[in-house]
């Protein structure tokens, strides 16, 4: 099979499962479709020759984050019927905006010639762990270190929000 056929098949699968995430009524099904979407995206990473990203994507997203999602959903009371909060006007406006963006994007894709793949000139080692590490600790050192601050803020924030504080008012 041609590699581009695999790509088309995977993309269709990704879009379909992503659509099912927002269309299925049962939240558990939504989460499972989301897991499936993440696996499809990981497969895309393999096609792009980024095996390490693929592994990380599966471990972090399909593994850790989705388990968290499932836990949270289990804690909710799903039996309760949540009434529709949005008016039909808001829904209509949302659909018009999203539809316009979709039409524009499709028009652009059709208008532009998609450049051919690099083929032989492509360095097959690009996505390997060693090269990725060298890029992260070389060219991208600053963003790499800054992400640690980002995570640190998120961590401190989680502790701060989760900690019980005595007293009536915090502010």
């Amino acid at each position: 099979m041609e590699i581009s056929n695999i790509w088309y098949f995977l993309s269709a699968l990704t879009l379909l499962s992503a659509l099912m995430v927002i269309m299925s009524k049962n939240p558990i099904h939504s989460v499972l479709y989301l897991v499936f979407t993440f696996f499809c995206i990981s497969a895309h990473y393999v096609l792009l020759n980024a095996q390490f990203l693929m592994a990380v994507n599966i471990i972090v997203y399909a593994g850790a984050i989705m388990v968290l999602f499932l836990f949270v959903i289990m804690m909710f009371d799903l039996k309760k019927n949540i009434p529709e909060s949005k008016s039909s006007l808001t829904k209509l406006a949302g659909s018009v905006v999203a539809g316009t963006l979709l039409v524009i994007l499709i028009a652009i894709v059709r208008k532009n010639n998609i450049p051919a793949p690099l083929g032989d000139k492509f360095n097959s080692q690009t996505g390997m762990v060693e090269n990725l590490g060298q890029v992260l600790y070389g060219e991208f050192l600053l963003p790499f270190e800054l992400v640690s601050i980002l995570f640190f803020v998120a961590m401190v924030g989680a502790v701060l929000l989760g900690k019980r504080e005595a007293g009536e008012r915090n502010f």
């Binding site: 963003p143 800054l146 601050i149 980002l150 803020v153 504080e165 915090n170």
Partner: peptide, 27 residues
Amino acid sequence: DHMIVLFVGLEILSVAMYVLTGSDKRN
């Protein structure tokens, strides 16, 4: 001077603000 730095900077600022906005826990 790099788009990634813009993105990471924006995220550090935003995540911090989400936390601080919700810091009045009983309200």
